[in-house]
């Protein structure tokens, strides 16, 4: 269902959509069955003069089976859902690609995303790292491993087209992966409330072909932004962003 609204732009997007569809079919079946029976009973047993109610305790076996059989069937459905969900979960959250194309670092702070790309040498924490704010650039069809860090409060690194979401927690580095399958520019959202600028924390992910990516990298002076990022304190960012937020609201008026 989800692909009608958002393209599937990562390798595991289709898997997650599959789980969603599986659950939709299974619970949809039970929902429509129950609702159908419910409305039929309401219609069939509406009050009519001279027709008294039946006296059914529901404790006898032949009556109880009307709820115990669905009960067991639901258990079976649950097993399907659990298996599918866990498989996808292991794939997305636990297994990392063995030979990632590159590692990137994603740093959340109030209220901006900072992305550290490894630069031409493909290694993080070297002199040629490329630091960007609110724009992440990746190559299509290449597995990436990312490390999430936060400088202040909880954030959430969410890329809806990848179906990917992971909280960013101060004091922890959380590792994950993705492999984009389609080029394009999409939203990165902060999906965990992080203060008054939470609504002003959009990032963009640019998925581009290898050639475009190389061209972008070449045009980028290494460490162009690194100095700024290092000098930024949360208080300062908070202050400017706060002003931006309130100014924004006023302008909108």
């Amino acid at each position: 269902m989800i692909e009608r609204y958002l393209v599937q732009a990562s390798t595991f997007a289709a898997d997650i959509d599959f789980v969603i569809n599986l659950i939709a079919v299974l619970v949809g079946f039970w929902f429509f069955l129950t609702a159908g029976v419910f409305f039929w009973l309401l219609f069939r047993f509406r009050r009519r003069d001279g027709v008294p109610s039946e006296y059914i305790t529901g404790e006898e076996k032949e009556h109880k089976r009307f709820i115990s059989i669905p009960h067991y069937l639901i258990m079976v459905c649950d097993i399907f859902i659990i298996v599918a969900a866990i498989q996808v979960w292991v794939n997305v959250k636990q297994d990392l690609p063995e030979n990632p194309h590159a590692e990137i670092r994603v740093i959340g702070q109030q209220w901006a995303w900072t992305f550290v790309h490894p630069g031409p040498d493909g290694e993080l924490d070297t002199a040629d790292d490329i630091v960007t704010v609110e724009e992440l650039r990746v190559e299509v069809n290449q597995p990436y491993v990312f490390h999430l860090e936060s400088r202040d409060v909880l954030h959430n690194f969410s890329v809806p087209v990848f179906r990917l979401k992971q909280d960013v927690i101060p004091g922890r580095v959380i590792t994950g992966w993705f492999e984009a399958t389609k080029t394009g520019t999409h939203d990165i959202q902060c999906a965990e409330i992080c203060g008054i600028g939470h609504g002003l924390m959009p990032g963009r992910i640019v998925i581009e072909s290898a050639a475009d990516h190389a061209a972008w990298m070449a045009g980028k002076a290494p460490n162009q932004l690194a100095a700024t990022v290092r000098g930024t304190t949360v208080a300062a960012t908070g202050g400017t962003k706060l002003a931006a937020a309130s100014g924004d609201a006023l302008n909108a008026n």
């Binding site: 702070q109 860090e149 400088r151 202040d152 101060p170 990022v229 304190t233 949360v234 208080a235």
Partner: peptide, 13 residues
């Protein structure tokens, strides 16, 4: 003090 500042900055080196 900012909780993540030291290590966050350090890793950018």
């Amino acid at each position: 003090e900012n909780s993540g500042d030291e290590h966050g900055g350090a890793e950018l080196h």
